[in-house]
Design a protein around this nucleic acid. Structure first.
Lengths: 225, 225
DNA sequence: CTAAAAGTATGATATTTGTCATGTTTTAAT
DNA sequence: ATTAAAACATGACAAATATCATACTTTTAG
């Protein structure tokens, strides 16, 4: 079993504030899991017994709406921590987490996290800052959802993915999403998302091959109105 | 100057986790302010030097979108704390706060709050829980914005205000908002909000006299599709 | 390698929501 | 109490988005 003290991943999340001793303790009780593309990590309503530290892969956080459609609220990638909110609030998960490709995660029991939050103030401040940032991000999404068109939201989503999750050598986006996923991020019908992507293609902003999307004109996408 | 140790308000927010000594210190450096209806408490982009504890009154947290329209993200009432996120994140305010009626607030300097967060773990845990709750709420709003119709969102807003902020003896909602404010919560055009309210009136779900709104059929509002 | 399934694409049409114009009512200041 | 300004209300029309139908393409499982 690999050791947390030597794991590079923790430098990217709030666990970086833990002491050597705390890391050793967590290392002893954590469990590693492999999660396959499409599999559920946890589901809305489920009680979480700990948090997940993502060593590799990408997943979506989504919630089922009354109309039967899934809404994606956030994309979570390598280095991020999953389930912090539910563990802190001591309540059932509000969102479902689904793997978008094969993932490797470490599960850390709730009691360890809560104990460290109580004892280590650097850690709780770090978690606080992290959550403050998530909250700001969520507020911005609310404004965008309410005030921008589907076309603008989709363009911004492409820019966001390009700038935050990068692209491969051949120019394709690192994260591969279905058109349905794009619709579910933007909050629109799948057909509408497809139509807008087709339009972007015609305008030379992107090109596609299958599910792969290549950004051709990032500034053009930023200018979409 | 009134004293925090004797103030009932703090029982309703995270300040309840502070010790007597901490409260005494805060009491000594806090300042009381009266804010008139319509006045700005702070504006998006402004650096906050502390947090506001709301002793009386109601305000809206909003953000200006690129299209020039204001989007209301949250309503904040007596007992709530304002500006926690900006102070913790050590960055400019992401939202503007505007009084919806005459308000009485206490301003607590940033350094006091940050010092207490460092020292008092009960307090930081309390703030953490509070923020976790805000985040959950924000995620739910995102889903509603993306997946529900203007009519549904407006009905839910009325139910929310009725259930969380109460009504007067004559049945009118405690919080009086303009049609423009309702539009700005729901994320629609003012005319659309007016039209939907008119429809609710025709259907007997609400009645109005001027800006005042009376809920006639709360269950009917909950059933709106 | 191949068939079935899943995903993508696009047209036609319906519905929802936004915009502009205009008139009425309410609110607030003198 | 009076009046100007603000807020509310509604019609007509335009634009954005959803829905349904259908065909094509890519991916996946055996």
């Amino acid at each position: 079993m690999s050791k947390c003290e030597q794991c590079i991943i923790r430098q990217f999340n709030t666990l970086k504030a833990l002491t050597k001793d705390e890391l050793l303790r967590i290392s002893d009780c954590k469990t590693s899991k492999i999660i396959k593309k499409g599999d559920l990590i946890f589901e809305e309503g489920e009680i979480l017994n700990g948090v997940y530290c993502i060593k590799d892969g990408i997943c979506k956080l989504s919630k089922l709406s009354a109309n039967g459609k899934d809404q994606i609220v956030k994309l979570v990638v390598k280095g991020d921590l999953l389930g912090q909110r539910s563990v802190i609030g001591q309540e059932a998960a509000n969102l479902s987490a689904t793997a978008l490709n094969d993932m490797e995660v470490c599960f850390i029991p709730k009691r360890e996290i809560l104990a460290d939050l109580q004892k280590n103030n650097n850690f709780s401040m770090e978690v606080l800052r992290d959550m403050a940032d998530d909250l700001k991000e969520a507020d911005n999404i609310i404004v965008n959802m309410a005030q921008k068109s589907v076309k603008q939201r989709l363009a911004e989503t492409l820019v966001y993915i390009y700038e935050n999750f990068g692209s491969n050598d051949d120019g394709t986006l690192n994260i591969i999403l279905s058109r349905e996923d794009y619709a579910s991020i933007v909050g629109t019908a799948t057909e509408s998302a497809i139509r807008v992507l087709s339009q972007f293609k015609k305008e030379g902003l992107i090109s596609t091959s299958g599910k792969q999307i290549i950004i051709r004109d990032i500034n053009g996408l930023k200018r979409v109105e």
